[in-house]
Each structure stands twice: as C-alpha cells, then as structure tokens.
C-alpha cells in the first residue's frame, strides 16, 4: 500500500510555550548539564543572559508539543504502532532564556516511501516573543511495512 502524500505542506495551529526557570533547571539536570548558565541565575546574568539559558536540546520541550499531534492526524495516515523516530535535526537561532514566550508552528515537510518504509518528515519553526527564530526542527519518523 503506497503512502498517502496528500498532507504534504499542511500547516497546523501554533502552540505557545512559556519558558520557566525551574523547568530549564529540571531539564538541564536530567541531561547531565553542569554549565552554571543553565542552573544558576547569577552565573547566567554574569555571562550576559537575562536569566538561566536553556540547553540547545531544550528545543524538544518547547517544540515537541507542536509536532506530537501530527503523528495522530488521520489525514497523514501514519501507522504509529510501526513507527520509529529515525532522525532529528535542530538548527538554533537566538538563545532561549527563562521568561521567554515561544510559539511553534508545525508542518508536514515531506511524506515518501522507499523499500517498503514510509518516511514522514515534520518541521517545527519556533519563534520568541520578539519574533526572532529560536529553532527549526526537522523530525523524521520511519514506518516499517507501509
């Protein structure tokens, strides 16, 4: 059964995320960050940030909720039971600090098929309250046996 490509280009409603200081610290500890700019406000300010700064991979926290619903969008017809997260790319822009308001818009970048596998590529674009892009994510999900 070929993959259905009709959802390519579909855009979704933006999702807002308010970045909290304790959330950054909780995330930084869970991934083993020891750089005090993620954990200590004074250290972050001394380094020139307005507040504790998010580790780059904190992008999954503010942009993940925008991409999750695409997996279950009936228009995409993705077989979740056979899905694996095959690849991920993030391109970072302006730094994210506690107090920022991040808005993320997800879209379907590509759907294709190769050797019986479906490739579902989603894109997330995250901007801060000043309209600066903070991250672009490319999420590649692979479905076996399409």
């Amino acid at each position: 059964m070929p993959v259905n490509t009709k959802a390519i280009g579909k855009q979704y409603e933006p999702v807002a995320y308010a970045v909290g200081r304790e959330k950054i610290k909780e995330y930084a500890r869970a991934v083993g960050e020891s750089d005090p700019v993620h954990l200590d406000v004074q250290a972050a300010r001394a380094a020139g940030y307005a507040d504790v700064v998010a580790p780059p991979m904190f992008a999954v926290v503010y942009s993940g909720p925008s991409v999750g619903p695409l997996i279950f969008d009936p228009e995409i017809e993705l077989n979740f039971a056979m899905m694996v997260h095959g690849g991920q790319e993030f391109v970072w822009g302006a730094p994210v600090v506690a107090g920022d308001e991040i808005t993320t818009t997800a879209s379907v970048k590509d759907i294709s098929e190769e050797d019986g596998r479906g490739y579902y590529v989603f894109e997330s674009i995250s901007t801060n309250q000043r309209g600066e892009q903070v991250c672009r994510g490319t999420w590649t999900n692979i479905v076996r046996g399409v």
Binding site: V37, A47, E89
Partner: peptide, 13 residues
Amino acid sequence: GGPEHLRRLSVQF
C-alpha cells in the same frame, strides 16, 4: 565552551 556555539545538530537514531 558554551551552549551558544552549537548552531545545528542532525542525527540518525
């Protein structure tokens, strides 16, 4: 030497 230096990361799982 700091988080600001990482501009892009792409991986395959």
